[in-house]
Design a protein around this nucleic acid. Structure first.
Ligand SMILES: [Mn+2]
Ligand SMILES: [Mn+2]
Ligand SMILES: [Mn+2]
Ligand SMILES: [Mn+2]
Lengths: 223, 223
DNA sequence: TAATATTTTTAGATTTGTCTAAAATATATT
DNA sequence: AATATATTTTAGACAAATCTAAAAATATTA
């Protein structure tokens, strides 16, 4: 089955939204795709015709098994290319998304599998997101939101859920990256902000909003 | 200046043809692009409007300075990606063209330059074709067509001008690749075929048509 | 539950890239 | 030079992806 670049982008957009909400609605997908609701409806018809979508007019929609499979192929490619860009070409992790957004549409299956092997079959991308394997299986990781971790417990950053340039820029400022070790020194009731100690850095304070987007796992646990 | 994938493909097609003939005509470009003459005319208008083309109706056309610059960017990307696929991902040199045909349209300039550096700034792609540098300069190489080489002179294969799958498949059969050392043992007047000795292989006979597409340089000369 | 607001779909247009068939131009042949 | 042939362009149509504006359906609120 062949998909256009546009179809692949919509499939991936639906995938991301349904991870959070189960059923997806037209307006939220329009926002995600930076397009208009009418354009979304047009595409929904095409994806339904291609039997990738569970969709009833006015009732919301989500990917069916075939759609999910297609989404995981694109997600795998996106994250493998991001890994390549950071690991081999030494890009900063906050500047690879836009490029991977193009690379994810290169169609050769042979290419993806050789790329994965060349990279050492990584299980997580530079933002800590899991990379599906060639069968679409996603590795599991035991991680918690930073704000739920007890005081003075040393943990390792494993993922970042908000991956806007603004967020990644901020983390860079705090010297926080994937694999960074840190602990919480104090929690401020007033606004939910946290005083944290990043390994080899001075203690600093991060807002609740930032803390809610940082995922960590126990030190020493391998991903 | 931004170009669509289609525009880039046409620009590259014109570039290849004008290398050989100077002026290009509509039908040959249609053949090169596997499309129809009418579609070519449509695109010529667009490229002329973008000031990339010297073009008078019915009189043929060629890229102007701006068009040439655009073509060299695409050619550089195509050949760098081919080098990557063969050198890093261990693809056969006869199976990379189609994939590079997609990869050459990834737009990031930063990506191309980092890729080139990662690959060690190669000057020639896996088919022996020169890779333009970031300013569009093409390395020169002193090479001759195999059929013009004197008998018993040991030479190294440096390029292959016909890069069809069929041709590359045939070369593989003869154990001929870039860098292969060989010499001509005998020339047959009757049909122009050559008896050659490929290093570490038995002597064999190749047709004139094959010989005309193989470029070689003196042994020991570095590219 | 009736009025109001929000969400979603449809109708109709636009742009890009392609095609076929016909017309226009250029080239070759008698 | 006139005619035939080949090449190139135009005219008009179509599919894909997008948009705006209006209509239809659903949800909210008084
Ligand atoms: Mn994309
Ligand atoms: Mn990522
Ligand atoms: Mn291409
Ligand atoms: Mn090549």
């Amino acid at each position: 089955m062949h998909f256009t670049i546009s179809e692949e982008n919509y499939i991936k957009g639906i995938f991301h939204l349904q991870q959070e909400t189960g059923l997806v609605n037209t307006n939220s997908l329009a926002a995600e795709m930076h397009t208009r609701a009418a354009s979304v409806t047009d595409m929904l018809k095409k994806l339904k015709a291609k039997k990738l979508l569970q969709y009833e007019k006015y009732k919301g929609f989500k990917l069916n098994e075939a759609g999910l499979k297609a989404a995981l192929v694109v997600v795998r490619k996106h994250r493998l290319w991001e890994f390549f860009l950071v690991d081999k070409l030494k890009f900063d992790w906050d500047s690879v998304h836009a490029i991977a957004e193009e690379l994810e549409h290169i169609s050769s299956e042979e290419l993806v599998n050789r790329l994965a092997q060349f990279l050492g079959d990584p299980a997580f991308d530079p933002h800590g997101d899991p990379i599906p394997d060639k069968h679409g299986s996603i590795p599991v990781i035991y991680q918690k939101i930073l704000s739920t971790v007890p005081l003075k417990k040393s943990v390792t950053v494993s993922a970042v859920s908000n991956q806007s340039t603004q967020m990644l820029e901020m983390l860079k400022h705090y010297h926080i990256a994937l694999g960074t070790q840190l602990m919480i020194l104090k929690k401020f009731e007033f606004d939910g902000s946290l005083e944290i100690k990043v390994l080899k850095q001075n203690a600093c304070i991060i807002s609740e909003q930032v803390a809610k987007n940082i995922f960590v796992h126990d030190m020493g646990k391998t991903k």
